[in-house]
């Protein structure tokens, strides 16, 4: 469990100060994954660095498992750092140490004896699927492998919290998948609370339970990913869901229908059966004009642009809305959907 309250951090700049964090409050329940997204310079890394105890905030509190960490110093600070695993932005492995040596570093800091250390390192490398790379140096590893070593290192001292700053930013989609799979296991098998900074919506889609949107040092949106999807006016819905305006849904074609709307469907049952059932029950012709299907974690989610023809088109649409489909009507006379 991570609780950040009213966190403020400024940096001295030319002339006036740069206010990187402006009263950020955020709470990540134990055993969940929270994504932090936002434009470049929004303060995401600053937030992560404050929680990682690398940066001292001007004001506010950071509590992990209920303990406020902001005021700690010396030995207490070092012990607290060991309880928070950190995967920093960019390359962060010791280049003169093997993968195993890097993973061992937190254990050395904790004063663990060599035999126990070796066993633990083997366990961690197994967790991230790099047992056969134990003796390789960072320069002999691929970007994705290096990042997985960094995750293993972050987890070495069995922290209850893991922070990852852009863990996939330099990786191709396939390698991203391998790193995300590891982060997902960390949550599900170890029950670790994860805070992941990212600009990649695929990361949010695949592993995040919650998401916080940071803009100019403030949290402008925060909640469960699935809840935000169905919330009107949410800033991230558009980037999480499939595009609706694709080839084949030209305004002219759209004009043939009595009703045109955008629907968001969440969950297996809704995505699979709701649209055909609506058509059947109300005896209308229902066509999918655009959009598509994606997954948020394990949950299938769809956004479609649909066209309905028939006397009871409006009834069919309300019926969908009653069943928790999120409906956005297209203005009939324009013929296309506002993005």
């Amino acid at each position: 469990m991570i609780t950040v309250e009213n966190l403020t951090k400024s940096f001295p700049g030319k002339g006036d100060h740069v206010l990187a964090l402006d009263g950020v409050s955020l709470s990540v329940p134990a055993g969940t994954v929270c994504g932090v997204v936002g434009p470049s310079g929004a303060g995401k890394s600053t937030l992560a660095r404050c929680v990682a105890l690398l940066e001292r905030p001007d004001r506010g509190s950071i509590r992990v498992e209920g303990v406020d960490l902001v005021a700690l110093r010396g030995r207490e600070l070092r012990d607290a750092r060991r309880r928070i695993g950190v995967v920093p932005q960019g390359d962060s492995l010791l280049r003169q140490r093997t993968a195993a040596g890097n993973v061992a570093l937190p254990l050395e800091s904790a004063g663990m004896a060599a035999p126990a250390r070796r066993a633990r390192v083997a366990e961690l490398l197994d967790l991230v699927g790099l047992t056969n790379k134990a003796g390789s140096y960072p320069d002999q590893l691929s970007g994705g492998q290096r990042q997985r070593v960094a995750v293993a290192r972050a987890l070495a001292a069995s922290p209850s919290v893991l922070l990852a700053d852009e863990p996939t930013s330099a990786l191709d989609p396939e390698t991203t998948g391998s790193v995300l799979a590891v982060l997902d296991r960390v949550r599900s098998e170890l029950g670790v609370t994860v805070l992941v900074v990212t600009h990649d919506m695929a990361v949010v889609r695949r592993i995040c339970d919650d998401v916080a949107v940071l803009e100019a040092g403030r949290v402008v949106e925060h909640g469960k990913v699935l809840d935000l999807l169905t919330q009107p006016g949410s800033r991230i819905t558009a980037s999480l869901l499939p595009e609706v305006d694709q080839a084949g849904s030209t305004p002219r074609e759209v004009g043939q229908y009595d009703v045109v709307a955008e629907v968001v469907l969440v969950g297996f049952a809704a995505v699979g059966a709701l649209l055909p059932e609506a058509a059947h029950r109300h005896d209308v012709e229902l066509a999918i004009l655009g959009g598509g299907l994606t997954r948020l974690g394990e949950t299938p989610v769809a956004r479609f642009k649909i066209g309905i023809n028939g006397e009871r088109s409006e009834r069919a649409l309300s019926w969908l809305a009653e069943r928790d489909a999120v409906i956005r009507r297209a203005p009939r006379d324009i013929g296309g959907l506002a993005a």
Binding site: L54, R81, R82, S92, R95, S109, A154, A157
Partner: peptide
């Protein structure tokens, strides 16, 4: 970044 990462290990 390497030094900071080491700092975070306590």
């Amino acid at each position: 970044a390497v030094v900071e990462a080491a700092i975070t290990t306590g």
